[in-house]
Design a protein around this nucleic acid. Sequence first.
DNA 1: TAATAACATGTCAATACTTACATGTTATTA
DNA 2: TAATAACATGTAAGTATTGACATGTTATTA
Lengths: 179, 179
Amino acid sequence: MRILKYALLGMLNKQDMTGYELMKLFEGALSEFWSVKHSQIYPELKRLTEEGMVTYTVEISGSVLEKKLYSITELGRQDFMKWLGQTHKMKATPKEEFRLQLFYSSALAPERQVYILENQLKQHNARLEHLKKNQSEFGEVPKRGTYEFSDYLVLLGAIRREEATCNWLKECIDMCKED
Amino acid sequence: MRILKYALLGMLNKQDMTGYELMKLFEGALSEFWSVKHSQIYPELKRLTEEGMVTYTVEISGSVLEKKLYSITELGRQDFMKWLGQTHKMKATPKEEFRLQLFYSSALAPERQVYILENQLKQHNARLEHLKKNQSEFGEVPKRGTYEFSDYLVLLGAIRREEATCNWLKECIDMCKED
DNA sequence: TAATAACATGTCAATACTTACATGTTATTA
DNA sequence: TAATAACATGTAAGTATTGACATGTTATTA
């Protein structure tokens, strides 16, 4: 499917960037729905260069440190826009180790079952707080048509997802403790 | 991490099964949080056999068709229970192609942006209806401590997740159409 | 009874992803 | 100024996963 390809092209469609800067972006807001390691980014940029989807110029940082500033080409932009305009079928639900564990958890002592649920709730609550803090930094909702608006929509999606997860975990805990 | 290992051991901890039956289970309720292809199951069962985590007996179905009925061993059960009782750190958020697409969607015409959102909503609504149908087949909430109870909890989780996704998508559509 | 769907088990090649290895520069701060 | 963190770019080995290839049996239904 080469989705990483489109993740990178999408960024370079906004502005020229180095591999390192791309990596940093994937550690930030994007990490809520896509994660990549630098060991995957550099080879993919190399491949995209060979395919003519991107080009780069070598910039000197300081006195000797070379860095590659990548730009999207017209070919790359066309390929990206084609992907962006398409509707995509939902993929198989993502794997979640915790839900698998919960699925089998009847084999545990009831207190332990509640404990792992509470542990998970704690982790998701922490993430939710973090996301809400990010949201508050927006101040008001960005204008439609801007990239900030899209940033806001996906952040909202991450918040709604965490809220739902926290509420579900609380429901589970209540049901486990009932009378 | 070998999570597939625990997915398989967890099933065999409930009852003896063939590779084919395991595969069928991963196409059912489990598919909401774990998916596996048969091409991954058979080699993993082979490996677990070599490791002494499972054993099998060959059963004859009909007159000649051989099938392998797998059982968990004491070693396998101990390893599984160790995993089951542990608390696990949340993994990096699962990859979602649609959210990546939405993140870049400011480069699209506004009507197209709304169209892909509505398409996604349609797909998630369909899945939600399907999950609710499954829930209604439970009749009432199963008793705590049974495997049915765990089945119910993870189904509830899938429903809450889809509800949140649908609500978020509606929010996005409204925000795109505002005034 | 012939066709078809479901049962049943595997391998292989390719892709995707992670972890560790490997190296060196530049900016900050103690 | 010395240490440290951040910048910067790669490779290699191993694990995980998918999709295609490969084969044959049994049950159902038209």
